[in-house]
Nucleic acid binder design. Structure first.
Lengths: 343, 343
DNA sequence: CGTTAGCACTCATTTAAGTCGAGTGCTAAT
DNA sequence: ATTAGCACTCGACTTAAATGAGTGCTAACG
């Protein structure tokens, strides 16, 4: 048996209706919903076929049908093809203020949440390279040195280093020059033991400080690994009864609070379909506790190797159309942000 | 009518039992629960009195009694008096790693959440003074200057400033000296227009840069105002049926995600009872959506004018004893952290 | 006079039975 | 191939009765 055109139309009508109502949909409804002018009996026959094909299921005998994961998948795939509109007015809101990165991402998450009524997440961009761009030591007071570390993509980190004895200005200058000359442009992997030893030798009696600085650099960059994730709209899940029974809601909220779990959504998109939007439906989700949800994600590029992720999490009956649209908009927005941010 | 000793005992037994079970408690239960050896009938008489006094209420006729807000209040007040144990092993966990401030606070929140099974919050310490401690401009590349701003309490902020033309080393040095000489030790309020004008004059052709820097400083410090709040254990509310119906849970989760609302819990403690632990029960809460909860908060001092808040939010029938204990421990931990962090 | 046993009464909760209706599958007619 | 008709299913809702925890009151007791 094949999915002919009529079956397709009926299937789409069923899914569409279910997305709106959240209720199982019966043959009678479809009989009127479509412009096919078919009686409910005919629809019933077709529905039986569609069920046999695995696109829809009955939650129980003598109830209407609801889409199976396969059904959703079919619907999403079809939709993705013809999806090409865009450029909504969201852009302006996002650009309104060229704020600091974290504020911007927070806002992006919120924007998506408000716009779609689902839970959303945005990860800070992370460089796969972690190239050191700039390093600056300053004497804060007698026993503290402030190290400012800038890595590619203008991610800035600070560390305070304790020193036993105060260093004079000249020494500070020397150390700064020494470090910047040798380390700038190197990735963290390239800063190996040999290089460190050489530097320490050049620094003479200040070798220990060099070591401390480099340790701090390494740790700071590494710290960036457990990356920031901004979420918003977690409480939207309460708008969907199928997600808000106690156990499920608790699990979901937990995932959104811990954020640790959400990292599983990252990086899958890396190798294969470049820059594609991914849709996980139900059991397809890499996160077990979200098997009653659908998840739509996309990566964004933040210039030169920096990449982050945005995602929307909602019930399986989410408005895929809108969600994909929103994701695309935000994604392209973030994609172009880097140049903007850099001028 | 007065609260004699027997009534007090009965009241405490009622509350204690209700805290454990979450169910209205009847006379029969109390009759056995206490060592008073009284029949249920006697208890009933006493309960009628207690109800008349406003310490307990009946959710409906012919159900057991539950504590009123006033009842909780009585219980908490009594408990606070005799509460003096402390020094749990929590300390070690918290000290285990002298991590960066935000990690530490996050951990503190989590620790409390795990320990108590309630929702918790920790705000980053905020200085009431905002004194500029140290300022450093560095040339990052031709068109960008990195400004590092350290304010009292070792809060470090970065800003990137765009400049039209590149500045040479000498100029940078001059600017740094100029700025540090005149601004260090001043609060943001003290950096007024007169001072700025004077500085600009001294900077000559680089006046505009001075202005940008000071703007950045002002904005950065101000940005600190919408302070960080770390939360944990929000999903614990699902463990308490009285909080997890859809509407309430949604409201609570929302408060914890938005965090904006939580700021209302801050600063009340400021003027009056110094360093006291505050307990808001039910309607006493400054946050409307939390009127079914109890909230326990405390301020902690982070050295020299920096102060933050920790709080635990749970159902009215929370284990006040444990919560106050936990809060005290964490508070004293954070109080002493500053010295630790500074050595 | 405080305490207690006894008892009638209340009322949320649970259980069972019954009704309703949306929806199905099948068959026969068009 | 399509449709009308009909018996059947089964969850959802309604109603009624049973249950039982708990109360308030009264009368008896030490």
């Amino acid at each position: 048996m094949e999915l002919d055109e009529r079956k397709t139309k009926i299937l789409q009508a069923i899914i569409k209706n279910y997305l709106e109502t959240g209720e199982p949909v019966g043959s009678r409804t479809i009989s009127k919903y479509t412009d096919l002018n078919l009686s409910s009996a005919t629809i019933r026959n077709e529905m039986a076929d569609l069920e046999e094909l695995g696109f829809i299921v009955q939650p129980h005998t003598s109830a209407g049908r609801i889409p199976s994961d396969k059904g959703y998948r079919f619907y999403v795939d079809a939709m993705m093809l013809e999806h090409e509109k865009e450029v909504e007015q969201l852009k302006d809101v996002l650009l309104e203020k060229e704020e600091k990165l974290d504020h911007m991402l927070k806002q992006a998450a919120k924007l998506m949440a408000v716009n779609t009524n689902y839970a959303t997440m945005v990860t800070a961009p992370r460089s796969s390279k972690n190239v050191l761009k700039f390093l600056q030591l300053s004497r804060m007071d007698a026993s503290h040195i402030l190290a400012v570390i800038v890595i590619e993509g203008n991610v800035i980190k600070n560390t305070v280093i304790d020193v036993a004895e105060s260093l004079n200005d000249e020494t500070m200058l020397k150390l700064n020059i020494l470090l910047n000359t040798h380390l700038n442009g190197l990735s963290v992997e390239e800063i190996n033991l040999g290089l460190i030893t050489a530097l320490k030798q050049q620094a003479g009696m200040y070798g220990p400080i060099i070591e401390e600085v480099i340790d701090a650099v390494a740790e700071t960059i590494k710290e960036d690994e457990d990356l920031e994730i901004y979420t918003s709209g977690a409480n939207n899940i309460f708008k969907y009864p199928e997600l808000s029974d106690n156990q499920k809601a608790s699990d979901l909220i937990n995932a959104f609070e811990e954020k640790q779990l959400l990292t599983q959504l990252i990086d899958d998109t890396d190798s294969e379909g470049r820059n594609e939007i991914k849709v996980y439906i139900g059991e397809e989700s890499p996160i077990q506790t979200m098997k009653d949800c659908s998840i739509v994600t996309a990566n964004y590029e933040f210039g030169d190797g920096m990449r982050g992720m945005i995602g929307i999490i909602g019930p399986k009956r989410m408005d895929y159309d809108k969600v994909v649209g929103t994701i695309k908009t935000i994604k392209s927005q973030l994609d172009t942000m880097y140049k903007k941010d850099d001028n």
